[in-house]
Amino acid sequence: MKHTISLFLTLAAFWLLNSGHYSVLVLSLGLVSIALVLIISHKMDVVDQESQPIYLSTKILGYYLWLIKEIIKANITVVKHIWVGEKSISPTLKKIKISQQTDMGKVIYANSITLTPGTVAIDLVDNEITVHALLSKDIESLEVGEMDRRVTLLER
């Protein structure tokens, strides 16, 4: 039930922010469209913990603040290496073990790796992730496991 409410609120906010017209006719059309989407997604059986991960909502904010800081640091490094030239980079391809148990945790971890410039998650099989990095230093800092630890904390 709470997942349905969360989906309803998301869709309502999306409609209200995108339309900008608040007459009765437009609002009732919006209500009808939201109801239609809710019915269809119930028939497709996609309204569950996976599509609406509201259990994350309390902890995810702190994680994203930390991630933004990491993204800014990684951006500065990559831009520096772009201007210094291709002699200074050391591209590395490596498999890394991950410690997350749930699918959601694995996806958040792989997504964070890809979102940080300088590292791209290529493949995710069971609990091994293939990462390509611009610098071998980045792989080492992933193996130390600061990000891994923080994502695992999100799961509980």
Binding site: I71, V78, V79, I82, W83, P117, G118
Partner: peptide, 24 residues
């Protein structure tokens, strides 16, 4: 990011250059 897309030697390293323009 555009310069990196031109300068870097192979496909995977170019992808990191595009990552810069996409995020920050």
């Amino acid at each position: 990011g555009g310069i990196g897309l031109l300068r870097f030697p192979d496909f995977y390293t170019r992808m990191h250059a595009v990552g810069v323009t996409d995020t920050l």
